[in-house]
Amino acid sequence: MTVNFFLQNLINALQWGSFYALIALGYSMVYSILMLFNFAHGDIFMVGAYIGLGVSIGLLSLFGTGAAAVLPGWVLLVMTLLISMFLTAFVGIIVERVGYRPLREAPRASAAITGLMIGIILETSNILFLGGSRLKFPQLIESTTYNIGGVFVTNKKIMIVLVSIGLMLALHQFISRTRWGMAMRAMAYDYVVVPLVGVPMNTIAAMTFAIGSALAAAAGILFGLAYPVLDPYMGVSFGWKAFVAAILGGRGSIMGACIAGFMLGFIEIMTVPAIQIVNRLFSLNIGSNLRDLIAYSIVLLILIFRPHGLFGQAYSAKLRL
């Protein structure tokens, strides 16, 4: 019973943390290259989810559903993921070109608020084009629940965690093995000097936004499969929390962002059973709605003891990718 209870929450936390980790990566990468946070990133996650919605509806109408299906659901899912990541990457590139490149020499504060404004523009244009009512994300694959000794796992949960970890490993390989990845690392090392030796600043910046946005789109689609109701403001609080994960991981640290994302999910989910246990032990009546209050107080405590995050470096321009 208690072991099951713990394992069940652990599985829930893994799924919840995958979303934070995928989105936190986008914050961290942009920070390490440009030394600023893209506050529109949460809304790019939202745009990615809506693009995924459009693409999957399109694919379903092309290849049929149910008995008339030409292709199995998981093929459609892979296609949706790839097409939407590709399209959302362009959204990221446009955001960088319109919102960030013209302001690269501007004061930091101006560059910081562009993200907020772009975020609002993305939310309101969604309302303008789609009317603001909530939409259901099509379930491309059948949901199956497995009961493993009292612990309930669905095929989607397993898939979401595996795809997220796969994408993180792929990103790691890209950054550490390819020439482009090396250019990104060099830029993260020093974004003033490195362009002088011939690394194209604009290309690298655009590429960083593209990769970050593609990962956010993947997170959006996986999110749609797990929580199938989409609304235009879904990226706001979620984006802020992923931003917390990025900081908690250490600014600009890729590995830190991933680990902190999972950690944040773990803290959030585990707070609920912890509240229940405390209630039982001391016969109190604390509601599970205090989850975020307690969870983020814990995060604050961690930051007090590790002000540079889990993997951040103190007083250094050297940011690791």
Binding site: N9, N12, W16, S237, I269, V272, S288
Partner: peptide, 21 residues
Amino acid sequence: AFESFTTGDKDFSAQMTNIMM
């Protein structure tokens, strides 16, 4: 089980785990 959340929450898995148990 008298489980609560706040407006805008999307994930209810932790509350549902409590309810299941």
